[in-house]
């Protein structure tokens, strides 16, 4: 008995999405954890007000990091099935979690290049990148930005 072509294509796409998506996610999580350990010393705060010790002798600079991530076919399918019964969609949660942590890491990278020890007033922003508007979540952009404070070169002044 011959399977219809559509079904074969669908199953292939699902399999490709599952295998490559899984691999990519695991690799990404490993890289995120390694870099988070590396930047553990660089504080990221959502605090708007500077403590007095930062008010003098420091320079400030806006830093940001962004990333656009895409779902894989398998996740898209899982989410579509999930929509029937409702509930939390774990497949998308992990995607957004990864994207947010990646964006923060890129921001920290910029901050550490400046020699900063702390980033204040960090804001996160999420936006669906268009092109897939009709097909649900296709790719999502996450952006993190904040103000990095680093010691002024001639702090003694």
């Amino acid at each position: 008995m011959m399977l219809p072509y559509e079904l074969i294509i669908l199953l292939t796409l699902l399999l490709l999405g599952y295998v490559f998506g899984r691999l990519a996610e695991r690799r990404h999580y490993r890289s995120i954890q390694a870099r988070e350990d590396q930047y553990r010393q660089l504080l990221v705060l959502a605090e708007r007000h500077l403590p007095p010790e930062y008010v003098t002798g420091h320079e400030s600079c806006l830093v940001m990091g962004n990333v656009v991530v895409s779902v894989d076919y398998f996740k898209m399918m899982i989410a579509a099935l999930r929509n029937l019964v409702g509930g939390s969609i774990g497949a998308f949660e992990s995607l957004l979690d990864r994207a947010r942590r990646e964006a923060i890491l890129r921001m920290q990278e910029q901050a550490s290049a400046l020699g900063a020890g702390v980033v204040f007033n960090v804001k996160l922003e999420t936006c669906r990148v268009s092109g897939d508007a009709s097909r649900g979540v296709g790719s999502v952009e996450v952006m993190a930005y904040g103000t990095a404070l680093y010691p002024r070169a001639n702090a003694s002044r």
Partner: peptide, 15 residues
Amino acid sequence: AGLKNIFGGELTGYT
């Protein structure tokens, strides 16, 4: 990007 939607991962071009 449409292709990438099958495999998942970062879309560097968009970033």
